[in-house]
Write a protein that binds this DNA or RNA. Structure first.
Lengths: 212, 212, 212, 212
DNA sequence: TATGAATGAGTCTTCATTCAT
DNA sequence: CATGAATGAAGACTCATTCAT
């Protein structure tokens, strides 16, 4: 096969740009580590820069403030959650599983999501004074998730809850918070499998209940 | 007339002690107000002392550190929660209500608990770097609550969940977190009555389900 | 004579208050020295605190910002200038000197005013980013001075300038700026006595001129 | 055809040099704009480079420091002033105006000089920590100007001030400072025409006065 | 020569805590 | 016991300048 010199529709990342990308990633990873280890307040920008192996000046070349680092980290997390949700919905539709199977997948996914650096997530979500914009984005994402879940549940005749929209909101919040809490206190409470099973069971019971 | 030296079963509050009590209370109330309004990090000890109407030196006479104030505040909250739980359990036993009625009482009580100064509670619980000891006390209280709840549920034959201990843990955590979240984001999500009703419904469905 | 215990209508300065006064003075003097030696930008608050023999924290207990120090210094200067002006006007009226004698007194006073730490004055007036409020006060003071001068000049029949208000403004600004400049560049230009004499001559000629 | 190597009396501007010239000009103009808008301290070299459309590296290729930019700008201003002075003297000699007409021309020219970017001039003159060398140049220029003025005044028999050298120094400084001040505070003080007229009147009265 | 990412010393400022009175 | 002036470590952030490419 002949390798033609490729035409570049969009300019290839030059080394300089690649470097910048790498620096941003280093900084973000460093911030994640530092916040995770020390909390938001005690995680100083100087420490983050040092951990990233760059000078404090460089940190501020890429992020205009300490807060910006936290926001970037949180946005990554949000995107990750949305991706997982979409993947789950898609798979549930494609594979036409039972309701229980679908819920199991959901719970497993959310546990996995909260499993990575749970302390960091907690810090970003609770300990960090976020700009209103980000806070709103968070709530909006949760609302969007609830809507997607409602849509999906509509496909299951076993789901007999009379107000699907409300039920979906409750379900999403329940999973989000219990799952978060589970990850935040490892070893406390039920063991992992039991916790997942109980959570699924609770959702299933709730959703399939008919009476008011 | 002979003045008999009174027997004191418990040492009578001398004016001095009474004064100290009052100062402690003023400080705690001031701390509650300041943390609630500004958050933990921005709530400075000087502001708290000022608000309490005492000097900063006096504050440190009664509380060895800023953290100690937060801990004391949190302990108050914890005690309040336990009191409510006990009251609820007692009443449920005494009045022999239906399971649903009992759950309604529980949920209503927890909503009420989280309703007062929800921001402060959030700050104390999430934003404050607490010593491990306090954290453990929190978890222990939750465990104790779960045990009490399990005990209570045992009285209801409709509760068919095969592992009551586990179910109680799940129930307590679900109520605690959803209720906390509900208070923390007023106006977001479901309206109050709907939320309470759905939460009760979820618990009831979960607990009365029979199969594994 | 019997010394009666004096009634204190206003509470006597307690040692504590006296101490605070002294600290403020130390700080102001230190700021004057540091700004004078290094300029506004290079005169750091830490250096000022160090020079004053107090900690940086103490500095900020008395002055909320670096700017506040500069403003306080400038206000002192302004007050000093007003005091001199009033003294001069009063003396001129009381002693009923000749116009020339009065002008000589004025010029001498203004030279003396600008003679102390001329660099500091220059720094405060020109190099310091002052809040608008202070800037306005400066201009207002100059206007007030011009009005007082106009009032005074009205008493001298030799003053034949047809528009006294305008003449007074010109006179005040001329004296202010030339005098400031003279102090700022010691040794440059005319010797002191010659400068004072020429300035008086210029004012006298200007004010006594009749034609348009 | 034989290409004769051209004699270059002065090295021809090569494109490269022309480019360099243009870059220097761009940088100076950018510096002028930035200092004028933000002041010396807040006018960062990065902003200047950006405004000039070149990289910060290029800026430092042409100017070794931020200060060097300010100095270059000030030197331009100085040259401009000298040019104006020479033009004025030449014209006064050639047109043989009256003393008053000559003074009017002088004052008008100085007002015009200070009229362009008065804030910038103020910043360069007062806010910028200049090297001694530049400061001396400034004073020297003023001395030279005074000498030229003295020379010119010698031609007017109405000028009866007994020490022309001194009178010229006073006159130059008066015009320089009042004019500067006038431009720096537009709207404050007298209206433009009145100011110019009064200044001329003051100079004329001063210079034509006879007695000591 | 031009570039611009990287540097890091240095600023102002805050605030929990102490201790002499 | 109460007071509150004093402390000073520490933090977020800026910006003139350098140098590898």
């Amino acid at each position: 096969m002949k390798r033609t010199k490729p035409e570049r529709l969009e300019p290839r990342k030059t080394p300089r740009q690649r470097r910048a990308r790498a620096t941003v990633d280093d900084l973000l990873e460093a911030a994640a580590q530092v916040f995770d280890a020390l909390g938001y307040a005690a995680g100083t920008t100087n420490r983050i820069a040092e951990r990233a192996g760059v000078s404090i000046g460089t940190l501020y070349q890429y992020f205009p403030s300490k807060e910006a680092l936290a926001v970037a980290l949180l946005e990554r997390h949000l995107e990750d959650g949305m991706r997982r949700l979409n993947a789950w919905v898609g798979r549930a539709v494609a594979e036409s599983r039972s309701l229980r199977g679908t819920l199991e997948l959901f719970v497993a996914g959310m546990i996995a999501l909260h499993d990575e650096r749970p302390r960091l997530q907690h810090i970003l979500l609770e300990e960090t004074p976020l700009p209103a914009r980000v806070h709103d984005a968070l709530l909006a994402a949760e609302r969007a998730a609830a809507e997607q879940v409602a849509e999906l549940l509509r496909r299951y005749p076993e789901v007999r809850h009379p107000r699907l929209a409300e039920a979906a909101v409750m379900a999403v919040q329940t999973v989000e918070h219990l799952t978060h809490r589970f990850a935040a206190h490892p070893g406390q409470g039920l063991p992992r499998d039991a916790f997942a099973a109980e959570l699924v069971r609770m959702l299933e019971a709730y959703l399939t209940r008919a009476e008011p």
